[in-house]
Simulated scan of single mutants.
Amino acid sequence: MRTIPPSGVLFDLDGTLLDTAPDLAAALNRLRCAHGESELPLEAIRPTISQGSPGMLNLGFGRTLDDPLYPALNQRFLDLYREFIAVETVLFPGMGEVLAYLEANCIRWGVVTNKPGWLTEPLMKALNLWSRAACVVSGDTLSKRKPDPEPLWYACEQMGVAPGQSLYVGDAERDMQAGKQAGMIALVAGFGYLGTEDRPEEWGADGFLEQPADLFGWLGAVEVGIATRALDLNK
């Protein structure tokens, strides 16, 4: 079976490329305080972040998407987050070295996230990543978003790479669903925001990354059609 290095690498944003948990948790706690509620510890909020606003607001207020008060609560939460969007947010440890390697070896990289563009763009710019990424696809860039594969296909098209020669890294089941349907090698970011109820071994992923540096094992040569590192079923 012939082997090739990947032509492109795509990342989910929250919980994969960036550790946004501190700033998202701070926004949720500011909103809770405004409603007379006490702050929640970061450790309690962190596992819900990959679920987006629905998960965080359900944790913080017990409000679900079908609650009539949800839309206003969600908008206020996002406004508070946008106001202080990059105070403590950083690349995950080791991710800076991964991006430097990709750029040095002419492997194009980009972001595919369900985060809306009005939050994605200022965050990426604040971290000086916007101009470095070959493409950034937000949750509202297209009419469809993950777990649909279309945003990944669109990102590959923008980068000028074939999906079958690319990797997608994410910390949620929908990321693996999108990646596999797109024909890409899909890797779980085990360092991201996985909750105790998550079962990544059941997501159909090609591999599990304990840390960003584990990506280096996938960047030298990826076997076409067969992952070179199996997902540890005991994870």
Rank of each mutant, 00 (worst) to 15 (best):
V137F: 00
K146W: 01
E201K: 09
C106F: 14
E97P: 03
G183W: 03
G62F: 07
V136Y: 03
T3G: 04
E201C: 05
P47R: 12
G117N: 11
I185R: 13
P200M: 02
E150Q: 15
P149W: 04
E88K: 01
L10Y: 08
Q181R: 10
L129H: 08
M176L: 15
A100K: 00
I45W: 05
L129D: 04
D198H: 07
W218A: 01
T120H: 05
E88Q: 12
L57T: 07
R63W: 12
G55M: 00
W203K: 03
G164M: 11
I185V: 15
W130E: 13
T89V: 08
T120S: 11
L73S: 02
L42P: 10
V90L: 12
C33N: 12
L187C: 02
P5R: 14
L99C: 00
L209S: 02
R229S: 13
Y70E: 05
A104F: 01
A26Y: 04
P5F: 01
L142I: 06
D175H: 01
G190W: 07
G110Q: 05
W153I: 14
G8H: 04
A34K: 13
M124Y: 09
V87H: 14
L28G: 04
L129F: 04
F84V: 14
W218D: 00
A230D: 12
F84E: 15
G207T: 10
R2P: 13
S53M: 08
P41Y: 10
P54Y: 03
A178S: 04
C33Q: 14
P22F: 02
V9L: 07
P47Q: 11
E97T: 10
P122G: 03
L194I: 09
E202F: 04
D140N: 11
E223R: 15
D23W: 08
L65E: 09
P116Q: 06
L24P: 07
A162M: 14
K180S: 06
G207D: 05
D206Y: 04
A213G: 09
H35L: 13
Q177E: 06
V136T: 12
Y168W: 03
R32Q: 09
R229T: 12
I49E: 02
E97S: 08
E210T: 11
L59F: 00
L142T: 01
K144M: 11
V161I: 09
